[in-house]
Amino acid sequence: MLRLELDPATRRTLRRATKNRNIRVGGAIVAIFVLMGLLAPFISPYDPTQGNLRDSLLPPCRKYPFGTDFAGRDILSRVIWGARTSLIVSTVSVFIAVIAGVIVGGLSAYVGGWLDEVVTRIMDIMLSFPDILLALFVAAIVGPGLENVIVAVALYNFPQFVRIMRGSALQVKEMEYVEAAKAIGESNASIFVRYLLPNSLAPIVVHATLRTAASILTAAGLSFLGLGVQPPIPEWGQMMSDARTYLVTAPHVWVFPGIALFVTVLGFNLLGDGLNDVLNPRTEV
C-alpha cells in the first residue's frame, strides 16, 4: 500500500494547487471544454452537419438557443462539436511536441557537445519564424485537413519544448545528485531516465498548458484562412470564417464560436499561470 502513496513534494504541490485561484477558475473552464468535447455526441441537440435551409440564419430563439448559420445548422451544436475538434487538434499536437521536445531537448542538454550545438542552431532557426508563419508554411505544403493541422501545430510547438526542456535539463544536470549517480556507477541511459527526466519536467507541464491555448488559437487561425480543418467538420475558426459575409446582419454566427474560443483560451492560460505559481519555486515566498 505504501508504494502507491504520492511523494510528499507532489502532495504538497497538489495541496497548494487546490488553493490557487487561477488553477480553480482555469481548471473549471478547461474541464467544461474537455467534457464538451468528449460528450459532444450526447449533449448536442442537433446534428452539427445537417442543416435545414428553411431555418437559415435564424437569430437565437427557443428552438436554436445560439441561432443557426447560413445552411440552417444549429450553432450551439456546432460550438459543442467544435470543442471536440479543438480538443483533438490541440492536445494531440501538444502531446507530440512535448514527447519530441523532451527527448530532443533532454538529450541535447545531457549529451552536450556538437549535438547540443546542432540542435540549438536548428531550434534557433525554427524559432526565428513567427509562430503562425511556420504553421502556415507547413499547412501550405502538406495541404489542409485535420491530420495536417495537427502536424503543422505540433511542428510549430516543437522547438519551444526543446528549448524549455534543454534549459531545465541543463540546470538539473549540474545537480549534485547527478554526479552522485555517476559515483555509484549508474549508466548514462539510467542517469537520463531516472535522474534527469523526472526532475526536469515541471516547467514542461506549465508550458504545455500555455501552448495548448496557443495551439487552439493557431488551429482556429489556420481554419479561418481555409488551411485547416475542412468542412463539414465543425471548427470554431472555420465557423467564424463562414460568418464573414454576415458580420453585421447575423452577428450571432461569429459571436458564439468567438466567445467559446476566447473563454477556452483564457481558461488554459489561467491554468498555466496557476501551475506556474505552484510548480515554479522562484515564485514561492
Binding site: A9, E176, Y177, A180, R194, P198, N199
Partner: peptide
C-alpha cells in the same frame, strides 16, 4: 557529500 539533500534524487 557535504549536503546529503542535494546529493539525493528528491524523487527517489
Amino acid at each position: 557529500y557535504q549536503d546529503p539533500m542535494s546529493s539525493m534524487n528528491p524523487r527517489m
